[in-house]
């Protein structure tokens, strides 16, 4: 038994688990991601010593988390998770015929106070969960996992223009949801 694994799990297991959970939002998947990371860490033992062990393990985990997200996407029919019909006309619920805002965006800021801030973040989290399925996958890949657009397009077999349109729509829906549900105290 590699004694390192015990040390790694004891010292960094909780952090790695939280890192995975923050992105995958599922406890079982987060546990699996930590396990995959440990297996990969032992197998390749590529720790170069020029960074901390935690940074090294987190680097491996990051890849595992994106891999898992991809796998989840591949398990679904692609037509269920992308919205190729999203075009100019799909923004009609936000703009009038002349391209003016139907409802002008309101100003809101991230609250300074810690309690309010966590309320704000949970509203955002709820809004994100409510995103239409056809927009959620790409939004998660781009704005949560911060994957490069080029890789997203390969993954979903779409053009950059498709990706931009869907991200535009997803962000628009999300900011509107925040505006409607975040009432300043």
């Amino acid at each position: 038994m590699h004694s390192n694994v015990h040390d790694w799990l004891n010292e960094h297991g909780d952090y790695l688990y939280r890192f995975a959970l923050a992105r995958l939002k599922d406890t079982h998947q987060a546990e699996d991601a930590v396990q995959e990371t440990m297996l990969a860490a032992i197998k390749h033992n590529s720790f170069a010593g020029d960074s901390s062990v935690r940074t090294w393990l987190t680097g491996i985990l990051k890849h595992k988390v994106v891999d898992m997200q991809r796998k989840l996407i591949r398990e679904q029919p692609i037509s269920d998770i992308i919205d190729l019909d999203a075009g100019e006309e799909s923004m009609d619920d936000f703009f009038d015929k002349t391209g003016h805002w139907l409802d002008k965006p309101q100003s809101f800021d991230m609250p300074d106070h810690a309690l309010e801030q966590s309320q704000f973040l949970s509203v955002l989290d709820a809004c994100m969960q409510k995103l239409p399925k056809k927009l959620k996958a790409i939004f998660m890949l781009r704005d949560v996992h911060e994957m490069e657009n080029e890789n997203i397009c390969k993954e979903l077999d779409i053009t950059p223009t498709n990706a931009w349109v869907m991200l535009y729509r997803a962000r628009m829906v999300l900011r509107k949801c925040l505006e409607m549900n975040w009432v300043k105290g």
Partner: peptide, 17 residues
């Protein structure tokens, strides 16, 4: 709003980490 969205998504992750 879009900038705030970025910052807030980042905070959700950091808070949990």
């Amino acid at each position: 709003q879009l900038n705030l969205l970025r910052v807030a998504l980042q905070s959700i992750r950091t808070n949990m980490e």
